[in-house]
Design a protein around this nucleic acid. Structure first.
Lengths: 133, 133
DNA sequence: TATCCCTAGTCTCTTTTTGAGAGCGACATA
DNA sequence: TATGTCGCTCTCAAAAAGAGACTAGGGATA
């Protein structure tokens, strides 16, 4: 076993590459949850204001109920959102972001901004790649 | 069709929620690619220095060759990394980050830093959630 | 009164994605 | 001769995701 593993720098901090296996790496443990297909989308919505289940479903038209429930539960489990049930006649459930979720969304929104700003460049790269292949 | 859709703010910019379906949303188009299980991990590695295929495989022990090849191709297609083949006797292939990739990694590394810093809080939230369930 | 719809899910079934592992071809080492 | 190295690709099994039916209890509609 190699103990002299390279230690890459990013943003001034170290990341121990000797434990990049799933179990030990904090980054992977956190990122794997929020890197799902729907997670960032829901975080983006809930960062703006609280939403109810059905509202989120209509907001993201191509998510299935199954994945919406599941993704919300995972985000709740990791402490990014809260789930509040109101015992109205058709029962209603509201999801809202926590402090932790907001603190995550701060850097995350920078990435979303980057995506907006550089979408054209990415699309151009795809065209180039597909042309020469 | 509802044209008066709420427009959430994040980081001072607008995101048109009326096209949150997969085809039209720039954010989803960009994010969906880099939100794979392995993408951020490989970007993180290649942000530090160029790596060869086998090096990456050893660095991320639990990735399959299939997913490593596939994820690298996708990152290459979107213009984040370059692939250079050296016709040595056992052929060697080097992957290195592009300018575009580096510009993405700038905000992305902020999220990775957040993950490092808040791993404990996330784990605590999980324990709390699992206890009351 | 019978029928429908609303809510926030769960359950089942099918399709897509991922993982585990073999094979490849040319050359180096033991 | 046998085995290992390189960067893949291929096949088959397992896991994850998507589509859609079903639930309960009350309110509105016909």
């Amino acid at each position: 076993m190699n103990t002299n593993v390279r230690v890459p720098q990013f943003a001034g901090k170290e990341c121990d590459m000797s434990n990049w296996d799933a179990g030990n790496c904090p980054v992977r443990d956190v990122i794997n949850q929020i890197s799902g297909k729907w997670s960032t989308l829901l975080l983006q919505a809930l960062a703006e204001r609280p939403y109810r289940f059905g509202e989120l479903r209509r907001l993201v038209p191509d998510i299935s109920q199954r994945m919406l429930t599941q993704t919300l539960r995972e985000l709740q489990r990791d402490g990014y959102i809260d789930r509040e049930v109101f015992p109205t006649k058709p029962p209603s459930v509201e999801y809202r972001m926590t402090e932790l979720g907001m603190s995550l969304f701060l850097p995350l929104s920078q990435v979303l901004d980057w995506a907006n700003a550089n979408h054209a460049a990415v699309k151009a790269a795809r065209v180039r790649f597909d042309a020469e292949a």
